[in-house]
Amino acid sequence: MSEELICITCPMGCRLKVDRRDDGTLSVTGNRCARGIKYAEEELLDPKRMVSATAKVSKPGAGLDAVSRVPVRTSVPCRKEAIGDLLADIYALTVDLPVARGQTLIQNWKGSGVDVLATRTLP
């Protein structure tokens, strides 16, 4: 049984056809370059995504430039099936100001090697 994928490594958008061999490895066709094979393997064997979201700020200020959310991202891609749980933990955060861009808000989330970082500096 073969599966169809669109490679998202570059804008070409190659339509990949992937078959599982008996030994568990994959046979990929339809790719125009080697990156297509790597993409198909990651996508079918261990799909991951970068996650970006926002976290609550503990005491948002007043005035025109008051900010109530701090944007965050993962340091590395997170396993797709874990994204829902990760988001729940990000939404449960309350971040005290000041916060610096790149500051770690969650370290090594559930031992996955994924950190959650602030992407904006708030005084």
Binding site: M50, S52, T54, P71, V72, R73, R101, T119, R120
Partner: peptide, 30 residues
């Protein structure tokens, strides 16, 4: 504040040419 639309584009995919790394909008703006 400076940054324009980048501030609300919290997803990544910015900066591969200008900074040679993949950044989110707020990071690129800062």
């Amino acid at each position: 504040r400076l940054g324009g639309i980048l501030g609300q584009c919290i997803h990544n995919g910015f900066g591969l040419i200008e900074f040679n790394e993949e950044l989110t909008g707020p990071e690129f703006a800062e």
